[in-house]
Design a protein around this nucleic acid. Sequence first.
DNA 1: ATTAATCGGTAACATATGTTACGGGAGGAC
DNA 2: GTCCTCCCGTAACATATGTTACCGATTAAT
Lengths: 224, 224
Amino acid sequence: MTICEQLSKNILFKNVGFREICTMLEEISYKKTSYSKNDVIAFEGDEVRGQYIMLSGSVRGEMTNYQGKVVKIEDIEGSSLLAPAFIFGGDRHYPVDIIANNDTECIYMGNESFTKLLQMNPELNTNFRDIVTSKTQFLSNKIKFLALQPIKGKIASYLLTRTKNNPGNSVLLPYSQDKLADLFGVTRPSLTRALRELDQDKIIEAEGKKIIILDRKKLENFIQ
Amino acid sequence: MTICEQLSKNILFKNVGFREICTMLEEISYKKTSYSKNDVIAFEGDEVRGQYIMLSGSVRGEMTNYQGKVVKIEDIEGSSLLAPAFIFGGDRHYPVDIIANNDTECIYMGNESFTKLLQMNPELNTNFRDIVTSKTQFLSNKIKFLALQPIKGKIASYLLTRTKNNPGNSVLLPYSQDKLADLFGVTRPSLTRALRELDQDKIIEAEGKKIIILDRKKLENFIQ
DNA sequence: ATTAATCGGTAACATATGTTACGGGAGGAC
DNA sequence: GTCCTCCCGTAACATATGTTACCGATTAAT
């Protein structure tokens, strides 16, 4: 698959024709970069001098808390931009470590090239604005999730969100409790303990990665 | 002062001439709104159907944590936009309660009017993008501040930021410990206790709102 | 098949922070 | 001056979460 084809799936190029992407790319200097699992693409605090545009793969953004514990902020799957809100504006530093979850390809272009690219097509500008907007919305929710509620609230949020458009009451955690603890910004034993307590109180049934919601009402009460 | 004059100070209209603002406004339907101290301009969770543009005054954004405790997210002074990142994108709900700190005036326009306005001048689009960008950067820092460090880390961040471009080592807190505790997302007694302990350890000298940094090195160690 | 690594459960204990309550000082309202 | 309110300091106690360590089960690697 050519780069142009891959880019046409990227949300930055939504509603932009394949041909047009090719034309634009010809006038822009960029380089292609590749990463393997657990390669660090950018370090928290590094200066942002350009824009990575994902072609394929999956990356994650991680912060580190005061104890040195990793807190995963988000997974970015498929075709998006890395740290789009940090190439313009006053604070041009990566807010997170950006790490490849598996084989990942990007193109990278410097600040000026990216600015030039955005000017080539108003659609790109709108798309970029919408990407940054949704990032803000995401972070706003993240604050509520990470900072304003205790562990059981996080569990409740997580489980209820995962079963929102889902008739059933069972959830299969997509990764280990260890990783989930990172996402919640807590330690694994604490997460396990909270899960056990919710299980003992017959609010959920938790066994390894399999969780069944027994009492949705009570679970909702832990949120907020 | 006319509305156009006031708007020309708003960051949305940066680099846009006074005359041009007047012309644009004539083609747009909007209304002027006024608030007194502690009036609620928008409630967390309300649907965002339009954009408030500040003319004058000061407002604050507050979330509520699971114990019902208020956590102040930010003060917005002077001339900015309220919840700019929530008029477009998937989650069009106010992320915070927005409350007037004192007499405040805005203009308000519906979603379509605001979209139309942005299309009238590319400068507005760029400005809007930069406003949303800086909001994202702000929230990203807010996560680190609120979620990833204990109280003494927050105190250290706060004090060191406030003396960054400031030769002295003394800080006068701009408001009561009570309000500061809201900003830190902790209770007042806990904040006082932490300040007392830092005082006893001779890292700061704290007396009411007056704080003197005695050992900048040790203070820095509390961050991260 | 054996070894090594990961994973989830658990427990004892330490620590940070919240809860509640009290008191005294400063300052404003009358 | 007296009352009232806000503000700060403080203390005893409760609670949530982290720390460390161990164990057995499962899974992956050789």
